[in-house]
């Protein structure tokens, strides 16, 4: 019996045999990682993703779902194992630049993005005299290649947002916006009943449907892109969107009628221009993650321009 003190899981001998099997399968040995070190890595992952009093079955399920071979490679790289780095570079060097190019869509930006990630992966920053490699945070939940994609995408998004904060005057003059007058404050004609009825209808949506709506109507994603993200056919997304839009409209109208509006009034209220709506700009600004960072979020940007 192995007692995992940190995670609070007491492993039976059956679990020990699972860990041993995973160790053998991972090929961690050839990168100089011992069984004990490997178990520590797995416990660390278990601590991160499992509840404190989780059952052994859950732990077993999690561990068996890990990509142990790629986990061993990443952790060996993080420890500075040369063999591991050689394997990593053979497998992912070219791929990393391809992914960066796919994300940044421009060669020099892609190279810069990939190089910065290489630096993070190698661990140029030191903590307590040790290199802190980003690969040490890989937990094997998804493929290593997928993880690299995600990390690159996150880095790209962060860079884009950082750059947006420092728009030069030259760029503004190129855009012809340096002397642009601020938008006049729109007249606020707000009927709280419309907002309440809409919020009520949206609150009843399952998160996946809300995700589809947001992706299509807010982010401007195509049906094909959403379908790829959810791994369904785009006709499925199309049908869902059609149904959702109809159902939402119906529910809001019904909510408005419950709030004392006639059908005609409710129909008219739904057609009110978004600029006439009161938007809580303070909350918007506080929500940094929802700031207008990306092209295609015109609605969001416009909403943020409204009066506070």
């Amino acid at each position: 019996m192995t007692n995992s003190a940190q995670s609070g899981i007491v492993f039976s001998s059956a679990m020990d045999s699972v860990l041993t099997e995973l160790y053998q399968k991972s090929g961690a040995e050839k990168f100089g990682i011992s069984q004990r070190e490997f178990n520590v890595i797995l416990e660390e992952i278990g601590r991160k993703y499992l509840a404190t009093n989780t059952s052994e079955a859950n732990a077993r399920e999690l561990y068996l779902s890990l990509r142990t071979e790629e986990l061993a490679l990443a952790r060996a790289c993080a420890c500075g194992n040369e063999n591991a780095w050689e394997t990593f570079l053979i497998r992912y060097r070219e791929k990393l630049y391809d992914i960066a190019l796919h994300i940044a869509r421009e060669a020099s930006a892609a190279r810069e993005l990939a190089d910065s990630l290489y630096a993070d992966l190698y661990g140029t920053i030191t903590r307590d005299g040790k290199r802190a490699s980003k690969l040490a945070s890989y937990t094997g939940r998804g493929s290593l290649e997928g993880w690299l994609r995600t990390v690159l995408a996150q880095e790209h998004v962060n860079r884009y947002r950082r750059q947006k904060r420092f728009v030069s005057l030259d760029e503004e003059s190129e855009d012809g916006t340096q002397f642009a007058a601020s938008d006049p404050e729109p007249v606020c004609v707000v009927d709280s009943r419309v907002e309440n009825a809409t919020d009520e209808a949206l609150a009843g949506l399952p998160s996946e449907e809300r995700f589809i709506l947001a992706s299509y109507y807010l982010d401007g994603r195509t049906l094909a892109e959403i379908a790829r993200m959810l791994r369904v056919h785009e006709s499925t997304i199309s049908r869902k969107l059609e149904k959702l839009a109809k159902a939402l409209r119906r529910q809001i109208l019904s909510g408005l009628r419950r709030r004392g509006m006639t059908h005609r009034q409710a129909e008219e209220a739904l057609e009110v221009d978004v600029r006439d709506l009161q938007v809580d700009i303070r909350r918007r600004l506080a929500q940094d993650s929802n700031s207008p960072s990306f092209p295609g979020k015109k609605v969001q940007a416009r909403a943020s321009d409204g009066p506070g």
């Binding site: 907002e195 709506l213 059609e242 839009a245 409209r249 809001i252 739904l270 909350r283 918007r284």
Partner: peptide
């Protein structure tokens, strides 16, 4: 594709629960 009322887009854009 049916167009969503603008109010729905706006409210959709305001998170219903804190993101964390």
């Amino acid at each position: 594709m049916l167009d969503l009322p603008k109010i729905v887009r706006v409210r959709l854009n305001s998170p219903s629960n804190p993101l964390g």
